[in-house]
Design a protein around this nucleic acid. Structure first.
Lengths: 206, 206
DNA sequence: GGATTAATTCATCAACTGATGAATTCCAAG
DNA sequence: CTTGGAATTCATCAGTTGATGAATTAATCC
């Protein structure tokens, strides 16, 4: 008996601990948020000593941002969105974003969203991503003065964030169980209207 | 000297410690979220020993939900919304919700929203409030079968949550600086469309 | 005025947190 | 075979957290 008392030292074959740790961290950060997730819990979930986590990632913050570095390449996806004609960009953006969120990047994205809400610096991070990347892609080649464009971008962002919150955080039915295409067909008109429709008090004098 | 060494025991006049604690708690929960706010920090902010906080509120959870119990009376506000004709309910709801969020209840509401995102049980709390109260009021006397109504309610909730997130948490311009009336005129059509408009694949066969 | 009750603080607990340094074991280069 | 580095765990630290029970002071009731 007394089969396995795990002694220290390097293991035989397995050289994937770092990746395992990252997976566990993404999962737990996504499920419970930044504060509520302890280094020890991550280590436990990864089947590893907590000191090993610190061996690969200096501290909790570094581990968190390492989780956020997306596995996929959202940059090119957004560039593709920017290249479509503005008249269908609502649907295109929705399809791209939902594609990302249904991919293996989901835990990282949920972690990003969760983090943004629970701490001010992380909120700044998300705001940057939102304005400098997503909204920027949305507004490419869009007509109108600066104020008008900024407003349209913010409204689109609000629709998008609302969807992500209800579908992935609050898990409000029937938005959770709906297929991606259903969601797209429901929300694309709204997004498109924000981008290219005309408003009650849209600041376009002259 | 050694002027003031605060000794234990009841104080002279001041009988408002409980309210002071609640104010500090609302403020800190709103600023930093549930996890990041410690009982001790609340006590310090209220100028009080941390044991006194436990004297009035059994534990941190009870304090949190006490913070959420709104100072105003949103029940009657929502009832008023439910009494309007469905055709203007989008605007009415928006006006009511924004009124609440611009009132003294704001810290409590931000705390509720922050809490929902950072922990699953608190998410359940917000989901309950959302479905049993807000969405319920929205759907009063609305035509359609159950599935259709549930979908419309969820979409309206997503638009609402998106607005609250961008305006009060992420602080995305120009939605932050816009006046309440501007926001209403921008979003009311969307909400109204979700409630009473017709959809691409609205499940109304026959 | 004596007894009861409420308000307040002190001292303290066990649990958990993130983090560090030293030890152990293995792999790979020379 | 030796030597250096990488992977891994152990033991431990100081700090914080939520919570409790006892002590102290004041207000209130009779």
């Amino acid at each position: 008996m007394t089969a396995d008392a795990p002694r220290p030292g390097r293991r035989r074959g397995t050289g994937n601990s770092r990746a395992t740790i990252l997976d566990s961290a993404r999962k737990l950060f996504a499920e419970q948020g930044y504060d509520a997730t302890s280094m020890r819990a991550i280590a436990r979930d990864a089947g590893v000593d907590s000191a090993l986590v610190h061996h690969y990632f200096r501290d909790k913050d570094e581990l968190f941002v390492s989780c956020i570095e997306l596995p996929a390449d959202p940059e090119s996806v957004l560039a593709a969105v920017a290249r479509t004609v503005p008249e269908v960009r609502g649907e295109t953006l929705l399809r791209a974003v939902l594609g990302l969120w249904e991919s293996s990047a989901q835990p990282a994205l949920i972690a990003l969203l969760r983090g943004a809400v629970s701490s001010a610096p992380n909120a700044e991070l998300l705001r940057q991503v939102l304005t400098k990347r997503i909204i920027a892609a949305l507004l490419t080649d869009l007509a109108g003065n600066a104020a008008d464009r900024q407003l349209r971008g913010a409204l689109a962002a609000s629709a998008l964030i609302g969807l992500l919150m209800t579908r992935y955080i609050l898990k409000l039915e029937p938005l959770v169980s709906a297929s991606g295409e259903e969601v797209i067909s429901l929300l694309a008109p709204t997004l498109q209207h924000y981008l290219t429709g005309n408003f009650p008090r849209s600041p376009s004098p002259a």
